[in-house]
Simulated assay, not measured.
Amino acid sequence: MNKLTCTAITLATAGTVANAGGTELTNQSIAVLFEQGNYIEFSFGSVNPSVSGTQVGTIPPAITGSASGDLAEGLEYVGAALKFALTDDIDAAIIVDKPYGAEIVYPMGTGYFAGGSTATLRSTAISAIGRYKFTDNLSAYAGIRQQSLDAEAFIPFVAGWTGSTNTDQSFGYLVGAAYERPELAMRVALTYYSSISHDLETTETSPLGVGNTSIMEVNTPQAINLDFQSGVAPGTLVFGQVRWVDWSEFDISPADYGTLTGGQPLVAYEDDTITYTLGVGRQLTENWALSGFAVYEPGTGGFKSNLFPPDGRTAVGMGVTYTQDNFKLQAGLQHVWFGDGTTQIGGAPAGEFTDNTAVAFGMKAGFTF
């Protein structure tokens, strides 16, 4: 049973696909803290969405019925983590990941009003975490997170507006606690991630001026993860996660863009999201383990952003783990069905997006030393 501990949860997120707004790449897992001894891992993931829709209103010169074409580009990301058992009671870890990212490119020549629009969001986070074990069952952990963020966009249907930011470095934190019963392969971990505030120097070009600069505040959202797992039979583990993200506080509002649109943000979300993951892992042999899982994120309704129109998602996936001595290799594959979404211009429906999907793949290689 011990070989399945943490492994199944890791596999459930190995192919994590974008969550709310298409901007979240990972769920910022701290599972490496619970690996035995000293441990290092390297991870790779790719997300390949297929997102398209149809115009539902006449937005000159585009007309009703125009197809958007596939607007979501594939993304790849890499990560790494290093964990040390400093004493019997104290662990430390460093985690490098890319929590947020997006690459939106509306094709030209389709007749769709947003044709030619592009947007890119990039981030990197480094987390330094310490964990203290009060008993064999109870522990607490906390850490500092340094995050970089930058973005750029071109929105031709808003007077040919373009904007880009510098790369800003800022800090946040995480705190959490875990209860474990090793003899049952049971763990419940609750982790809080603070919001991180970025002051982005933004340069805009539009009819209001060429190269206008201002400082734009962007707060990446606070979040809470509840992770759980428990053995239910010899060699069988049930695992899952409930993740809340405070997306209603996330807002990208360049100054000149807001003036041109009457105060509308470039990207914003009206509601928070809650994502549910549930799965089962099974040890097949001494070296091989298999897991299957399902993910559900309910839609929130209302108009969605033109820069990522789907609303909610349902996904199924599977993962496999191979272990040999101090080496562990994990791979996961996930198929996603996005919920239908409607975009808007000036408060009126603009595009309908239905039957959109994505495929995500992830891989991790870990070594105990």
Rank of each mutant, 00 (worst) to 15 (best):
C6L: 10
T7H: 04
T7Y: 03
A8K: 09
G15H: 02
G15K: 05
V17C: 05
N19H: 01
G21M: 06
T23C: 05
T26I: 09
Q28S: 12
S29R: 14
L33R: 11
E35D: 09
Y39N: 14
N48S: 07
S50C: 00
S50R: 08
G57D: 08
P61V: 05
I63H: 00
G65K: 06
S66L: 01
A67H: 08
S68P: 15
A72S: 15
A80N: 05
L82R: 05
L82M: 13
D88T: 03
V96M: 12
D97S: 13
P99V: 03
A102H: 06
E103D: 13
G111M: 07
A114D: 10
S117D: 10
T120Y: 07
S123R: 08
I129K: 06
K133I: 01
S139A: 14
G143T: 02
Q147E: 14
G160K: 03
G160D: 03
W161P: 00
S164E: 13
T167F: 00
V175P: 14
R181V: 13
A185R: 08
V188W: 02
T191F: 07
Y192A: 04
Y192S: 08
S197H: 04
S197Q: 10
H198P: 14
D199P: 09
T202G: 09
T205M: 03
G211T: 04
T213Q: 10
S214H: 14
M216H: 02
M216N: 10
T220E: 01
I224S: 10
N225D: 13
L226T: 09
D227R: 05
G231K: 07
P234D: 10
Q241A: 07
Q241T: 10
W244F: 13
V245A: 11
D251C: 09
Y257P: 15
G258Y: 00
T259N: 09
L266Y: 04
L266G: 11
A268E: 14
Y269R: 13
Y276A: 02
Y276M: 07
T277K: 14
G279M: 01
G281M: 09
L284F: 03
L284W: 05
L284C: 07
N287Y: 01
S291H: 01
V295M: 01
Y296T: 00
Y296V: 08
Y296H: 12
F303Y: 15
K304Q: 15
L307Q: 00
D311V: 04
R313P: 06
A315C: 12
V320H: 06
T323Y: 00
D325P: 12
G332P: 01
L333W: 04
G341T: 06
T342R: 14
Q344L: 04
G347M: 10
A350R: 02
A350M: 04
G351M: 06
F361N: 00
M363P: 00
F367G: 11
T368V: 03
